[in-house]
Design a protein around this nucleic acid. Structure first.
Lengths: 257, 257
DNA sequence: ACGCATTTGTTCGTATGTATT
DNA sequence: TAATACATACGAACAAATGCG
C-alpha cells in the first residue's frame, strides 16, 4: 500500500507553509501575526521590531517559539537579524540589499555599477493585459516609467515599468529624477510599498526599432527579455516590469541549489 | 554541572579539523561532519541517515544541536526530512526533485513534459577553456553529450554537456539512451557523482547554422543561451553545460525573494 | 577605558504532538 | 497497538556583539 522508497510521497497536495487553516503550530501563528504587523506598517522598513523576549510576553509564548517564527521570516527576507542590536524590517535601501532583485552581472566578474537615465514617466489608462497582471479595476490608471541603465556610455538595459496609479499618487519624473538610490527604496519610503518577492520570466527576443535605438544595437539583435511581476505583502502584485538586456558584456546570473 | 560548550570543545578538539575556522558553533561542526559523511558516501542518495538521537549520541551533543545542523543541510537541499520516517540524502532521482535545476516552463503554465533525444556522446580531449572550467589536468579527457529536448515534435532545447572523462568512465551513448529518468539520477547511481549546486549564466544569442538546424528556427533567430557550471560536494565542478533554449512557447522562470 | 545592560546566538534538557510502520 | 522518528514547545543558562554611561 505504501511505497517504501524515496520516490513515493509526492502525491499529497501539501498545503502551503504560510496558509494556516484550522490547526497550525504556534510558531506559525506567531509568524502570521508578525507578517500582519509588517503589512500594516506597525514597524517600517529599516526599523527594529521588539526584542524576542518582548514579543514572547506580548504573545504569551516562549521566547524560543518567537525565535522560530522570526527565523523563518528572516529566511524569507522579511526581517534581518543583527546580533547584539536587534531584528529589523528588511529594506531595499540598505546597502547590503540594494538591487536585491537585479541579477545582471558583468562578464568579467564583480558587480554591476550602472548609471540610471530616466527617459519617461507618464500616467496612462491601464491596458486590459496590465489590469489583469496588476489586478486593477477596469479603467484604473497606471504609471509608466521608462529608463536606461548604462555602463559608462554604453546602454545595457531598457526598462519599462508599470505601477498602479492610485497607489503611487504623486510619482512623477521630478520625484524619480531627484531620488538617489534604488527605485524600490523610493517606493518604500515615499509610498509605503515594499516589494517582498517577484516572479521573472526570461526569453530571448529580437530588438525592434525602439529597443535598437535606445540600446544602440542593430535591429533584430538578440536581447534578453526579463518580465518581472513584483508583489508586496499579502501576495498583492504592485509592479509589472519588462527589461531588455543587451547581454554582450553582461549576463543574467542565477545560482541553483 | 553539565558541560558548557567550552568544555565540549576541549573534549573534542578534533571536531574543527577540516572546514570550521578554529572556533565555530557546535552545530556548525556537526554540520561539517555530516557533510563529510555525505561526500564520502557513507550514506548514499535516497538512503536514510541515522536518527537525530543516534547522531546526538555518536557526536556526544544534544539532539537539538544535531537538529539545527540537519535543519541547515535540509535548507540547502542536501538532506530531505520526512516526519515519522527519517532524514534522507537528497537525490535527483526522487520524483519531487526531478529536474530540480531546470527552470524551463511552458508559457501557458504547468510544468514541462519534454522528450529527450540523444544526438551524440563522444570522448574528446578537453579544450583549455573546458579544462579551466572543470579544473582538469592538462590533456585530460572529457565526455561530450549533445541532446535535444522536445515538446512533442518541436525541439525546444539543444544541450551540450561536458563531463570529466575519468570521473565518468564507461559513460557512453548506450548507457545514456538506456537510462530512464533524469541524467543527474544516472550520474548519482552509476557514477557516484551528485550535483549539489550550479551556477547559471544567461544571455541572448543569435542562432548559428547548427542551432538553427536542430531547433528548427531560422539562422540568427534569438535564442536563450544558458551556461551552467555544476558542482558536487566540496565545491568541485563536475559538469559544464550549454543549453540553447527556443523561447517561443516556453520561458525561463525565476522566483526572486 | 571599562563595565553593564540589552539583544541575538548557541546549547542543553525535557515533555508532548504527529506521522509512519 | 506499539515503537520509532521527526516536529513543536517550554525553560534555562551562557556566549558574543553592541551601545551606553
Amino acid at each position: 500500500m505504501h511505497d517504501n522508497d524515496a520516490m513515493a510521497e509526492i502525491e499529497r497536495p501539501d498545503l502551503a507553509a504560510d496558509a494556516a487553516p484550522a490547526f497550525s503550530p504556534l510558531y506559525q501563528q506567531i509568524k502570521a501575526r508578525l507578517m500582519r504587523s509588517l503589512q500594516q506598517r506597525e514597524w517600517k522598513p529599516g526599523e527594529a521590531i521588539p526584542s524576542e523576549t518582548d514579543l514572547a510576553q506580548r504573545f504569551k509564548v516562549s521566547q524560543g517559539t518567537v525565535r522560530k517564527a522570526i527565523d523563518e521570516l528572516a529566511a524569507e527576507n522579511h526581517l534581518t537579524r543583527r546580533q547584539g542590536k536587534g531584528t529589523f524590517v528588511s529594506t531595499h535601501s540598505a546597502v547590503q540589499t540594494q538591487y536585491r532583485f537585479l541579477r545582471l552581472t558583468p562578464d568579467g566578474g564583480g558587480s554591476a555599477r550602472l548609471q540610471r537615465r530616466l527617459l519617461e514617466c507618464r500616467r496612462m489608462r491601464a491596458s486590459p493585459a496590465l489590469s489583469q497582471s496588476l489586478q486593477l479595476a477596469s479603467g484604473e490608471s497606471a504609471v509608466q516609467v521608462r529608463r536606461l541603465l548604462l555602463d559608462g556610455e554604453s546602454p545595457v538595459v531598457l526598462d519599462d515599468i508599470w505601477l498602479p496609479g492610485p497607489l503611487f499618487a504623486g510619482l512623477d519624473a521630478e520625484r524619480l529624477a531627484g531620488w538617489r538610490g534604488p527605485m524600490y527604496g523610493l517606493f518604500e519610503s515615499e509610498f509605503g510599498v515594499r516589494m517582498v518577492r517577484a516572479e521573472e520570466r526570461l526569453r530571448a527576443v529580437a530588438a525592434d526599432a525602439e529597443a535598437s535605438r535606445w540600446l544602440a544595437v542593430p535591429v533584430a539583435s538578440p536581447l534578453l527579455e526579463v518580465e518581472r511581476l513584483s508583489f508586496t505583502y499579502g501576495d498583492r502584485p504592485v509592479e509589472w516590469r519588462r527589461g531588455l538586456y543587451h547581454t554582450a558584456a553582461f549576463h543574467y546570473r542565477n545560482d541553483l541549489q
